[in-house]
Simulated assay, not measured.
Amino acid sequence: MKTLFTTIIVLLFSLALSAQETFTLKVTVDNAKNDQGTMVYSLSTENQFMKAAPLQSATVEIKDGVAVAIFENIPAGEYAVMVLHDKNGNNQMDFTDQGMPKEAYGMSNNPMSYGPPSWDDAKITIESDKEIAVRL
């Protein structure tokens, strides 16, 4: 009886650990001014947002002003998406001498602000498969 009880507990515990549901996020940019370069996407948690390497990233070709990235196996939670139109292919945002971005960029929720975006403005909640559009 004791062995049966232990086996059931171990089985339930292992099922709970392996049953973490994950989701897919589709991110579309449809307003690129041209097809030059690529779109660079990053999906970040609050701790990674503009501080560290993202949870996932993608580099996508632009065709007729449209680029679509798909992030898979995302656990439920809060995330932010950043998108950069990397015209020169150096995988980073370029700035003018005055500190203004030279390349177009956008964030989840499409906040319109002067200066760096905030986590609160850009965060989205993933609780199921989701599609969002980001404007540059």
Rank of each mutant, 00 (worst) to 15 (best):
T125A: 12
A16C: 08
T24Q: 13
K123T: 09
I132H: 04
S128E: 14
Q92E: 15
F71I: 01
V83T: 12
E103P: 06
F49R: 07
E72G: 02
T6A: 15
V40I: 09
A52E: 15
T125L: 10
L12A: 14
W119A: 08
P117W: 03
A104P: 02
A76N: 03
I62C: 03
M93R: 07
E78F: 07
V68Y: 08
N90Y: 09
S18N: 14
S113V: 15
P117T: 06
N91W: 00
T6P: 00
K102I: 09
D94P: 06
M82H: 10
A133Y: 01
D35F: 02
S44L: 00
E46N: 11
K2L: 14
V81F: 09
E21F: 01
L25P: 06
V27I: 14
G106R: 05
N109P: 05
P117N: 04
A67W: 04
D30F: 02
Y79H: 11
T22M: 07
S118D: 05
A58N: 11
T22P: 05
A76W: 01
D94H: 06
G115R: 11
K87R: 07
I126F: 03
M107T: 10
T24G: 02
T3D: 15
A80C: 12
N90D: 15
D97E: 10
G77F: 12
T59P: 00
V83M: 15
W119E: 09
Y41A: 11
S14Q: 08
T125W: 01
L17H: 09
P75R: 03
D86W: 05
E103D: 11
G37S: 06
